[in-house]
Amino acid sequence: MDEKNNSSQEPTNYFETIISSKKTAGDNIPQNISWYEEPMIFDTLREADEWIGSEAYNKIGYEFDGYITLDAKLAYSLVYQLIRNKKFRESAEVYADERFIHNTNYYFVWINKENSKN
């Protein structure tokens, strides 16, 4: 094949539509709990981890039962800290989910004390 012919080919547009009868990712996010909406976005996981450790981690389960953020690093860090330190806090189930709304990813982390094992 001639290199000239190969480079003259125009790229084609490609898209894919997936239709599923299954529930969407956000169907299990509870609406009847108090949510904290985090406006901060960090550049590194270390910064996010420090922020979560000093801010949200201490409020989840006391002031709020859920946490909403646009930063995946914050959600990851909160889930990690809640699960890692579960034995030091009141027992509660930890959940996380993600929704894509209006071209933006929202990350949800929440606890459910009602289903906890005491």
Rank of each mutant, 00 (worst) to 15 (best):
N58K: 15
N58D: 12
K59S: 04
I60G: 02
G61Y: 10
G61R: 08
G61F: 10
G61A: 06
Y62W: 07
Y62N: 05
Y62E: 04
Y62C: 03
E63A: 11
F64D: 02
D65V: 03
G66Y: 05
Y67C: 02
I68W: 09
I68S: 05
I68E: 05
T69E: 05
T69P: 06
T69C: 10
T69Y: 12
T69K: 08
L70W: 10
L70C: 05
L70K: 12
D71A: 11
D71N: 12
D71K: 10
D71H: 07
D71W: 12
A72V: 09
A72K: 12
K73E: 04
L74N: 12
L74W: 03
L74M: 14
A75F: 09
A75V: 09
Y76E: 09
Y76A: 11
Y76R: 14
Y76P: 00
Y76M: 09
S77R: 14
S77G: 14
S77N: 13
S77Y: 12
L78Y: 13
L78T: 10
V79Q: 13
V79E: 10
V79L: 13
V79D: 09
V79F: 12
V79I: 13
Y80N: 15
Y80R: 15
Y80P: 00
Y80A: 10
Y80W: 14
Y80E: 15
Q81F: 14
Q81I: 14
L82Y: 12
L82S: 12
L82P: 11
L82E: 11
L82W: 13
I83S: 09
I83D: 10
R84G: 06
N85T: 11
N85Y: 15
K86P: 02
K86M: 15
K86C: 06
K87H: 15
F88L: 15
F88R: 15
R89K: 14
R89D: 06
R89Q: 14
R89Y: 13
R89F: 11
E90I: 05
E90A: 12
E90L: 10
E90M: 09
S91V: 08
A92R: 12
A92H: 13
A92F: 13
A92C: 13
E93W: 06
E93P: 01
V94W: 12
Y95F: 15
A96C: 07
A96W: 08
A96K: 05
A96P: 00
D97C: 06
D97Y: 05
E98V: 08
R99V: 05
R99S: 05
R99T: 07
R99F: 00
R99H: 00
F100V: 04
F100E: 04
I101E: 09
H102L: 04
N103V: 04
N103L: 07
T104R: 14
T104G: 01
T104S: 06
N105I: 00
Y106H: 09
Y106F: 08
Y106Q: 06
Y107R: 01
Y107N: 02
Y107D: 01
F108R: 03
V109N: 04
V109S: 02
V109E: 04
V109P: 03
V109F: 04
W110P: 01
W110L: 01
W110K: 02
W110V: 00
W110H: 02
W110G: 01
I111Y: 02
N112Y: 03
N112P: 00
N112M: 01
K113F: 00
E114F: 01
E114I: 01
N115Y: 01
